[in-house]
């Protein structure tokens, strides 16, 4: 008799614990599902930025968009071989450094060799000729002589 009562009590105790456990599991499942559906509802309003979903016109979001003959992301002129320059010459430094340097074929090749020997530039393979040709064609050396005339002067009235 004593044994039977004790067994019943144990079963009751186990039943209670199982119920609590199930409750906890359900609670977590509820929180989890709520979070998946709407994460904001579980956070304090002050902690969350106001969120609004907007879609961007794929036209505007074109990573390699070209406008008026200029590749917008880098500023390079759109001409034969320019993507080879974008892909091989703008990983370490900006394209501004490329565009402001005016060199002939021989000096560009020497510069490429220097970058390969000391600056971790990879072997350009067939792209080397494409790149050098693009640079000497689109950013040619302009002779400046021993001293240039002042140019692009913005005239203004001097008031003192």
């Amino acid at each position: 008799m004593e044994k039977e009562r004790s067994f019943k009590n144990n079963v009751k105790e186990l039943y209670k614990q199982l119920l609590v456990l199930c409750g906890i599991v359900f609670l977590f499942a509820f929180i989890g599902i709520t979070y998946m559906v709407s994460p904001e509802s579980l956070l304090l309003a002050s902690d969350t930025p106001k969120v609004e979903i907007t879609s961007i016109d794929p036209e505007q979001d074109d990573w390699d968009k070209v406008e008026n003959g200029i590749h917008l992301r880098t500023g390079l002129k759109e001409a034969e071989g320019y993507m080879a320059v974008v892909n091989n010459c703008t990983n370490c430094h900006s394209a501004q450094l490329v565009m402001q340097n005016r060199m002939n074929e021989e000096r560009w090749i020497a510069t490429i060799r220097w970058m390969q020997e000391t600056q971790n530039l990879w072997d350009l393979g067939e792209n080397e000729a494409v790149i050098v040709n693009y640079l000497v064609t689109n950013y040619p050396v302009i002779s400046k002589g021993r001293r240039e005339s002042l140019s692009n002067i913005e005239w203004y009235e001097l008031k003192e």
Partner: peptide, 14 residues
Amino acid sequence: LMKRRNFVRSSVLG
């Protein structure tokens, strides 16, 4: 990244 950018949020953090 570009796919992600299609869901740009209008908030500052976004």
